[in-house]
């Protein structure tokens, strides 16, 4: 059996650019599951400070991130000095539905 994915949820708490309904629904569905997952208040805020925790996140295998536009998320990590692995899956809470996102986040690879 393969190792489980690492799930990361960004709350975008420092600016209200992600629809509240979508980000709440995604978090509620993650909470309703039995999965372990990581949540951060705001990836932009962490990138602005070159937060070393981003390095720990980027080092995870099978990373799935619920945040915003993939181009922006990749750029944030790269600019902070911790580029994401190419296979990282980024789900966009600004354009996708909560159901689509949660399904991808909690998908089993086995």
């Amino acid at each position: 059996m393969s190792s489980p994915a690492t799930i990361l949820y960004c709350r975008c708490a420092y600016a209200q650019v992600v629809p509240t309904g979508v980000k709440n629904d995604v978090l509620q569905q993650l909470c309703a599951s039995e999965a372990s997952f990581e949540t951060v208040s705001d990836l932009c805020e962490m990138a602005a400070h070159r937060d070393p925790r981003l390095q720990a996140i980027a080092a995870c295998s099978k990373l799935r991130i619920a945040a915003c536009y993939p181009r922006a998320v990749k750029g944030l990590f790269q600019q902070a000095g911790f580029p994401l692995p190419a296979e990282t899956e980024i789900l966009n809470m600004r354009t996708q539905t909560a159901a689509e996102i949660t399904e991808s986040l909690l998908r089993s690879d086995s």
Binding site: T6, A13, L30, E34, A35, E38, T39, A56
Partner: peptide, 21 residues
């Protein structure tokens, strides 16, 4: 999260990000 904390839910079925300092 809305207050700025980073939160890990430790349950089952997914990997956790390693701790740092």
């Amino acid at each position: 999260l809305d207050q700025g904390y980073t939160v890990t839910r430790s349950g089952h079925g997914a990997s956790a990000v390693p701790h740092d300092d």
